[in-house]
Amino acid sequence: MAMERAQRFVDALAKLEEGGELEPLVSLFSDDAQVSNAASQRMFSGREGARQFWKEYKGTLARVKSTFRNMIESADRVALEWETQGTAHNGSAVSYEGVSILEWDGDRIRRFFAYFDPGLLGREMAYGTAQRSEPPATTPA
């Protein structure tokens, strides 16, 4: 299967975003993995670092859902173009997009880095300025 590793990551991320299941995603990372993104000041190392990174990711938003436009897999590299929508803990709608690069060592991820505009995400979380986000859910009267 040409896209097997890309799909394994996407499926594990969906389990985290939808149900809070952290371990399916963490189990994809190697013991010496390097994990980070454009908003982070640090590189998270190893499987424990991956666990902390993804726990913080999930904790950043009250609700989160990623969709993938493009998944490109070649040799030991995967590129994922995505859009993430959600709701910040203050109720602000969030919608941001970017690209994640995954480097694999066999069946484990040795490096993960996500590229996106952290300033845009911060403004959306603080001020609710997302243009593509769905309106907050309302309850029937």
Rank of each mutant, 00 (worst) to 15 (best):
62 A>C: 13
130 A>S: 11
29 F>L: 07
54 W>F: 13
105 D>Q: 14
48 E>C: 00
2 A>G: 12
42 R>F: 04
41 Q>F: 01
94 V>H: 10
30 S>V: 04
26 V>S: 05
39 A>Q: 05
88 A>E: 03
70 N>H: 14
87 T>L: 09
128 G>L: 08
108 R>K: 08
18 E>W: 02
89 H>Q: 01
61 L>F: 08
56 E>Y: 01
43 M>W: 09
44 F>I: 02
82 W>C: 06
108 R>L: 00
39 A>N: 15
88 A>W: 07
82 W>N: 03
72 I>G: 08
2 A>T: 15
25 L>E: 02
66 S>C: 11
59 G>Q: 09
132 R>T: 10
9 F>Y: 15
110 R>S: 06
110 R>I: 02
18 E>C: 10
100 S>D: 14
42 R>N: 12
66 S>I: 08
38 A>M: 02
78 V>R: 13
6 A>N: 05
93 A>S: 12
88 A>R: 04
81 E>P: 01
55 K>V: 13
64 V>P: 03
41 Q>A: 15
140 P>R: 15
133 S>C: 03
39 A>E: 13
104 W>M: 11
54 W>M: 04
57 Y>H: 15
63 R>T: 11
16 L>G: 09
52 Q>H: 14
45 S>H: 15
22 L>P: 09
14 A>H: 04
25 L>K: 06
43 M>K: 07
131 Q>D: 13
97 E>L: 12
138 T>A: 00
36 S>C: 11
19 G>D: 10
106 G>E: 06
125 M>F: 08
90 N>T: 09
64 V>Y: 01
112 F>K: 12
66 S>D: 10
55 K>Q: 03
26 V>N: 12
54 W>L: 14
106 G>D: 07
